[in-house]
Design a protein around this nucleic acid. Structure first.
Lengths: 253, 253
DNA sequence: CCGTATTTGTTCGTATGTATT
DNA sequence: CAATACATACGAACAAATACG
């Protein structure tokens, strides 16, 4: 009692893909050819192809055919936690020999709700500033980032937060020079989930949630344990790898 | 008339699931009932259900029916990087108010290949010790961990590495007391990928690669920049969340 | 630009097998 | 054993997208 017919056809096609007979991007035989080759009905070969689609191995294009999906060489997001003493944290995203670009930030005023309120430790409904940016590497959609600041920081004088300009020197150092607020640590929560529809569109991911996204939330704290901001970043997991360097670490190979 | 029939049926079912009409674990109407309700053929309602399966929303059980899948409350893997100076790193996985258990380690001697050789900076084919453990929380499969050590450490006197006993006090401190080797930093690579078949079985994940796994590789280094070991851990992404605390961070809510 | 051939997408019908209750 | 429910497999027709002369 072997497996059902469509499964055996699918397995054989998978093997032919793995063996390199069909390279990335190459076209598979058409339904008619598969039908003849395996002497099966059209619905059965279609079930086999659907099984391969379900595993993310191939994709179909109406009027054209069935193609092996392309694989992507992942970026490395490097978070460096070195330094002498814990006063200065260098937290850097390095895109090795690639050129990153950033959209102009979209600045909005919101009422804090849910995670935003609880992470920033402000009451639900209080005002927060959000800064949203789309980030690209070599023109490819790379990450979506939204940062929330308590409005109290603006009221204390950090007015640049509500200006729609990029701050390449970093907001943390801006807060230190402007308000004398010093970051002494941060917490990062990293979780993996399917993309929401907007993320799927931006990253051009399949709409079935097969490709997951990293969703990272970073909250830096000052000396008194008060959260300074909440930065939420979403990266597609198919083209990103997190690298965390702690302490003295030799350069990467 | 834009969307095909099976899509509209699927969307309506998805909405009824989201609205709570069908709770987690609840049974959906049978194919016959759906057929009558939507006045569609059996194949069409089956296509609708397959679409829902493809999104991981429901599962079918032959002879029983179609059911809404259960969601799982995630564990938090907490990595704490605090300490006074960077001499002692506390890297702890805290399972809050849950009881972790660990299988007896399976110890093997291998020839280093691929990532193992390159991360440990030993020649391909040289001997390495691997220690493999299955880890559970409250009896639920939680993670798979394999750690590789260069054989040179054993030859220098760290003979416990080739004994199949758990070392709860930690291998790093064992190496320090035995050989005087001190860890001064580490690199962690975190990536997300579909589970391989063995992982899917152990974690009881669907065999279609829909639920991703975290694959983490941690390499600690000594003062001379030499890698001490390579620890590869795999966690199912549907029940785990990474939390990274750096510097002075107030306790989690 | 138009029409035709090719290729996949959707929908129906029907029959039979397998798993569970 | 019988009833129920999903799984597999075949056939057929038409629709929609694409490629090409």
């Amino acid at each position: 009692m072997p497996d059902p017919r469509y499964r055996r056809i699918a397995e054989e096609l998978r093997q032919r893909i793995d063996s390199g007979e069909f390279a990335h991007g190459a076209q598979l035989p058409t339904e008619l050819e598969l039908r003849r080759r395996y002497d099966a009905s059209r619905n059965t070969v279609r079930d086999a192809v659907k099984w391969l689609i379900g595993r993310g191995l191939v994709e179909t294009r109406p009027g054209q055919g069935t193609f092996v999906v392309d694989r992507i060489e992942p970026f490395h997001m490097v978070i460096d936690i070195s330094g002498h003493g814990l006063d200065n944290f260098i937290a850097e995203v390095a895109a090795l020999s690639r050129t990153p670009t950033v959209s102009v930030p979209r600045v909005e005023i919101h009422q804090a709700t849910g995670v935003v309120a609880s992470e920033l430790q402000v009451p639900e409904g209080s005002s927060v500033v959000s800064r949203f940016q789309q980030r690209y590497i070599d023109g490819m959609a790379w990450s979506l980032q939204t940062t929330y600041y308590p409005m109290s920081l603006v009221e204390q004088g950090a007015v640049n937060l509500i200006r729609a300009v990029d701050m390449p020197e970093g907001v943390i150092s801006y807060l230190e020079t402007t308000l004398g607020i010093k970051q002494v640590g941060w917490r990062e929560r990293i979780k993996v989930r399917p993309p929401d529809p907007a993320e799927a569109v931006f990253f051009r991911l399949p709409d079935d949630g097969r490709v997951a996204v990293f969703a990272t939330m970073r909250t830096p704290f000052d000396e008194s344990g008060r959260p300074l901001r909440l930065r939420m970043t979403v990266y597609p997991a198919d083209r990103n790898q997190l690298v965390l360097n702690v302490g003295r670490v030799p350069p990467d190979a």
